[in-house]
Write a protein that binds this DNA or RNA. Structure first.
Length: 290
DNA sequence: ATAGGCGCCTGCTGGC
DNA sequence: TGCCAGCAGGCGCCTA
């Protein structure tokens, strides 16, 4: 569920609530396993640890602990990572509880669909290896213009699929991919290698713009997303194409169209974001023959 | 080697 | 009203 803006909002919310706090005790609140198995030895290793910093990498939340270890958290589609009063009745689908040293709050990991995970890594080397193993790409705000153009030029995949590939750029998901393509005025089925350098630049800037605005609005709350302090986001009010099938395009009024691409929905304006023409495919085929 | 399809889960919605 | 298919913000494994 949560994409970069939602994860960034959670990290910013959690920072003042968690940094400097110590875990008094940690317990597993559910027998169900998450995407990555939770090691039974971890609660004992985490008890007594103080949170020194919280950061984000792509859609991952990273808790930096005082013994040099890390907790890396992924929220999958429905994960929630919040600090609440310990007296708050435990919700369903609660998986992990971290009791804090102020005696009245706890950090909770809740995940309805269990596509999320919480993993303990022993140190910097393991953390780096963890992200390297998944091939996690650069942060969208740090994209090198030349490298970005080259990674698009080197693939025949539809641009929408490229945006969802965390190895190319980290943190973009289905909502912000559709929104960025609308802002960049590019059809989701345009192939990476068919984009002109100017279009590639336009897309890179559109990603940054869309994500920046979404962070300012605390992300998008559709169903399950809440920030680290339990507060919802507001960017869903700003959607120009995502989940707006049949509604008027904010630029030209044409009904927003919808297609399925590798099992996921893509929303776009059929007039503003014209379909890739057959000619470009032929020219590409010729190019490959040469 | 790459890219698409499917499975993992639960919950909600819309159509019949 | 009730049922059920289809769909949902993600990712990793399998296959072609």
């Amino acid at each position: 569920m949560p994409e970069l803006p939602e994860v960034e909002t959670i990290v910013r919310d959690l920072r003042p609530l968690l940094v400097g706090r110590r875990f008094v005790s940690v317990r597993q609140a559910s027998k169900h396993r998450l995407r990555r198995a939770w090691d039974k030895a971890w609660p004992a290793l985490l008890a007594g640890r103080t949170v020194e910093a919280i950061s984000r990498r792509g859609k991952w939340i990273v808790l930096h602990l005082d013994d040099g270890s890390f907790l890396v958290v992924h929220l999958g589609m429905t994960g929630q990572f919040t600090v609440v009063a310990s007296s708050t009745p435990p919700p369903d689908h609660l998986h992990l509880v971290f009791n804090l040293d102020d005696g009245v709050h706890q950090l909770r990991f809740r995940d309805i669909r269990r596509f999320g995970s919480v993993t303990r890594l022993t140190g910097q080397a393991e953390l780096e290896e963890f992200f390297a193993a998944s091939g996690l790409g650069p942060e969208p705000f740090d994209l090198n213009a030349k490298a970005w153009r080259q990674s698009l030029a080197g693939t025949t995949r539809p641009i929408k699929s490229v945006l969802l590939d965390q190895c190319v750029v980290a943190g973009v998901g289905n909502i912000y991919a559709d929104e960025a393509l609308f802002v960049a005025v590019l059809h989701p089925l345009r192939r990476g290698c068919d984009l002109t350098p100017a279009e590639a630049d336009r897309l890179r800037k559109a990603i940054v713009k869309v994500l920046t605005t979404a962070i300012e609005k605390r992300g998008s709350s559709i169903r399950n997303y809440i920030g680290g302090s339990g507060l919802a986001g507001g960017y869903q009010e700003e959607f120009r194409v995502y989940s707006r099938k049949g509604q008027p395009c904010p630029r030209c009024g044409t009904p927003i169209a919808h297609l399925r691409l590798s099992g996921r929905s893509a929303h776009y304006c059929p007039k503003c974001q014209p379909k890739p023409r057959a000619r470009t495919r032929i020219s590409k085929a010729r190019h490959e023959k040469e």
